[in-house]
Design a protein around this nucleic acid. Structure first.
Lengths: 229, 229
DNA sequence: CTGTGGTCCAAACAAGCGTTCGAAACCGTC
DNA sequence: GACGGTTTCGAACGCTTGTTTGGACCACAG
């Protein structure tokens, strides 16, 4: 097992694109695989995409995945970790800003905004981040054991939000706060392609073309009302 | 709202249990397969369960699935269709009752109750219907193409609810009604085992043991507030 | 009893999967 | 221009998958 893993990534700061551009050709292949895999997984699910599908889409050799990532599952986990870290960083940043502007006691709406806006901003149909958020949504139900263990056990990131909400809702029983946070997250997690398609069919096209900022506002409105009622 | 639903209040000929009891031994095998498959799929996902897993769990021969159902996918589709039909029937019945008691113009809350209560009633941890609702939730994201085609295209059942909501919310733009219905459904679809576990971890056990009627009330409260705000 | 239709069973099948291997190709450096 | 480490490549491996097969079994009708 003396394989030549590139020292690779772990970039100092967040990059929207998986890897910096002016890298060696090896990193280029790695990047091609990463992007193709994320796209295919987002579109067709995890088990529905084979190593051969990915390498074919990326235009690289079949063995590339195992060479650069170790295994198919490790590739999946790598994508998952990178996108999760990016998303958590955005959310934390927004929550931090809300804390700053509201003297440490942001209102419910600002907290929900920090929770909802980052993933939904990625849902811009024209942006290339759409696949990232679809990937993460899928990871929640179809992910490997490894991924779901992380999702289940690592609640430290979410706790910042629940703590803030507990402060913002002193008149609510903690139980209620946790359930309503659960419901608010549901709004985000339900935005799979299939669900949006179904909604579009139901509304006969009325909801087909949505404007991102408007959609975020809709979701925050809905969740906020559920908290404040 | 007559929400004193017994777990099984099916009409005359259709059965809550997969098959009548006093059948031939052949039908017994079929039933064993059906139950084992639904359970395993609900627990471990669709692609994560093989034909061999199912037949082993059911204690029948490997070939039984193809003999009785035609194929693995056909078995899945069969379970999906039966459970979907049951659920839709319950929802339709509750909506119909709401229409009756409110002279054809039920308030938002009654409509949401008819939408939310049936699947959540199945979530009783002690009931054997828990696997059915987990199966249906999984079908939404992991289902076969066939299943997702049905989910996407057959909106006739949902349309009864959107129509009722449009009547109940004459002051709202139809667009808003559709989006909020979409959000309300999200509350139901997000109740996977993994999500409830995560919530339980986050709340440090506060939400672990929930009472079904109380949970339904929480969800309806949340959704209603989002509609009426 | 013999025959027949339905069910069950062990075994095998072909296809697809993730992964591995040895050699070829490539690279900057001596 | 030869070298050593890295990357790519085509081919193969071992395994699991869903499905099929042909016969054994059994209840029941003629």
């Amino acid at each position: 097992m003396s394989q030549g893993f590139k020292p690779e990534d772990m970039d100092g700061q967040d990059t929207a694109e998986p890897l910096p551009l002016n890298e060696t050709e090896a990193a280029a292949t790695r990047n091609l695989v990463f992007v193709a895999a994320e796209r295919l997984f987002a579109l067709h699910g995890f088990q529905g995409v084979s190593v051969r599908d990915i390498t074919a889409e990326a235009g690289v050799n079949l063995a590339s995945i195992n060479y650069h990532f170790g295994s198919k599952d490790a590739l999946l986990f790598d994508i998952f970790n990178r996108r999760t870290a990016e998303l958590n960083r955005l959310r934390a940043k927004m929550l931090h800003e809300a804390n700053s502007t509201h003297a440490g006691k942001p209102p419910v709406r600002a907290i929900l905004q920090a929770l909802i806006a980052p993933p939904v901003l990625w849902m811009d149909p024209k942006g290339e981040r759409l696949v990232s958020v679809q990937f993460l949504i899928r990871a929640r139900s179809e992910g490997t054991d490894q991924m779901r263990d992380v999702l289940r056990s690592d609640v430290s990131h979410l706790r910042r939000f629940s703590d803030a909400l507990l402060v913002a809702c002193p008149n609510l029983a903690p139980e209620d706060v946790y359930w309503r946070l659960h419901f608010s997250l549901a709004l985000v997690h339900n935005n799979r392609f299939a669900e949006l398609d179904r909604l579009s069919t139901l509304s006969e096209g009325l909801t087909r073309e949505y404007e991102i900022e408007r959609l975020i506002a809709r979701m925050v409105d809905f969740a906020e009302a559920g908290f404040l009622r």
